[in-house]
């Protein structure tokens, strides 16, 4: 009997260590990581890639403050910032005390990323569904899809570097839905310079993207509320 117990206990511990973490555990650990950041100010370059907008690369500052304040500011020039860009900070998914159901979606073929879906329990929540693609080893969200009531679906793709320990990305690609753009010629005083026009059907319902490449973060140094007004 003693022998059996001596053999069983280490085996049980070994099996437990091999057991994959549950979706709840992963979410808790990811949230724990993002909780380390109370606020940040980050500098970066913003590229706008929307089919009907031509714009230069802009130098921007991104401000974040718990629980869910986020502002992308072009300090000098003009940038078209999409609605819902507040989701650029993934910590916002876990913002406040909102509770959600966690559904394990298994692993993504090819990348091995763990797919976890978050369903807010609150009926009037703006976010309907968030699907996270998580690197289990590093506890980093690599991709996310968020479906909202008002502002369509957003997708995020993150690349991490030296701020990975805080769960902050070095590069974020934020994709969002855009509508067809059209203004009457009488309003724009447009001149037809003979340039070949894009196929109208191609322009319809195309996804827009903004890409922010961060050059540095200043974490937990305090950000005044006035920045978000």
């Amino acid at each position: 009997m003693k022998r059996i117990i001596l053999l069983t206990v280490p085996f049980t511990f070994f099996m437990l260590s091999l057991r994959a973490q549950t979706a709840e555990e992963i979410i808790a650990l990811v949230k724990q990581k993002s909780d380390k950041v109370n606020d940040y100010e980050a500098k970066g370059k913003l590229k706008t890639n929307v089919v009907f907008i031509k714009a230069p690369v802009a130098t921007v500052k991104v401000y974040f403050k718990k629980p869910d304040k986020l502002r992308i500011k072009n300090e000098k020039g003009i940038s078209f910032i999409p609605k819902g860009s507040v989701n650029v900070n993934l910590g916002n998914i876990f913002a406040g005390n909102a509770s959600y159901d966690i559904i394990d979606g298994g692993k993504e073929p090819g990348t091995g990323l763990r797919i976890i879906k978050l369903l807010p329990q609150e009926e009037n929540a703006e976010v309907v569904l968030s699907t996270l693609y998580i690197d289990e080893k590093q506890l980093l969200i690599k991709k996310a899809k968020t479906t909202t009531k008002e502002n369509g679906t957003f997708e995020l793709e993150m690349t991490y570097g030296k701020y990975a320990e805080y769960g902050l990305a070095d590069k974020v690609i934020f994709s969002f839905n855009t509508k067809d753009y059209k203004l009457p010629k009488g309003v724009t005083f447009d001149y037809d310079d003979g340039t070949k026009k894009e196929d109208k059907n191609k322009l319809k319902n195309k996804k827009g993207k903004i890409e922010i490449t961060y050059s540095g973060y200043s974490i937990n140094k305090g950000v005044p509320d006035s920045v978000f007004e």
Partner: peptide, 14 residues
């Protein structure tokens, strides 16, 4: 500041 040109089919920022 940067100049925005509104055209019938798009927006151009210079």
């Amino acid at each position: 500041n940067d100049m925005t040109v509104f055209r019938a089919g798009g927006i151009e920022v210079i």
